[in-house]
Amino acid sequence: MNTVIDAHNVSKVYNRETVPVYAINNVHLHIEKGEFAALVGPSGSGKTTLLNLIGGLDKPDTGSVFINELDITKLSANKLIDFRLKNIGFVFQSFNLIPVLTAKENVELIMQLQGIEKSVRDVRVQQLFRQIEMSDKMDVRPAQLSGGQQQRVAVARALASRPKFVLADEPTANLDSKSAFNLLDIMTKLNKEEHITFLFSTHDQRVIERARRIITLVDGRIVSDTAAVSTRHEKADV
């Protein structure tokens, strides 16, 4: 198996001068290609901070983050933007989409940024909307989509650039159960069928149950890292 993410001895300290807060404290984390891993933990445990460090949105105070064996903490801010564009798919908790663009245009945006030509984009967009089961909603503005549908489009956008992995910070936090499950179904399917690597944070117990690996953070430290206890859904699928 090949390692996609390798966080090495990573720490992030806030308020170093006054009352230091170890948002992330000496974390080691490996994520292999094709994993479907959940980052869990109480509020303030450092989930967002860790995802930002892995996604190259933030720099650690100590340690390194290797993505496919490249230490991204050594990249300049500008190089990092380009690196993110080409290697990482992002899904945020909400407001992922540009309100003035249609669902399709939002997904296309990332490929336009990559300079991919129109014909290729069109094929890819069609395929992605099939995968998120929203082919009929391509030309709709985000405001006319439900929260769950918006998150699915966000997943499609994250995948549009064919990233090495997708980072999702609480992607279901603003969704009702049905939409949350629906989004999880799609993510699971993409993971199984397309071997897309997902690392997402959540404190939603129902979501945790669907993960195949659960990494628990408390006070910026990984306190447990286990293969999923329950494979109930996988069994049910078979």
Binding site: L57, I81, F90, I98
Partner: peptide
Amino acid sequence: EMGMLVSIGMK
């Protein structure tokens, strides 16, 4: 929105 655009890779 601008923060998000830069996050996802807009120069």
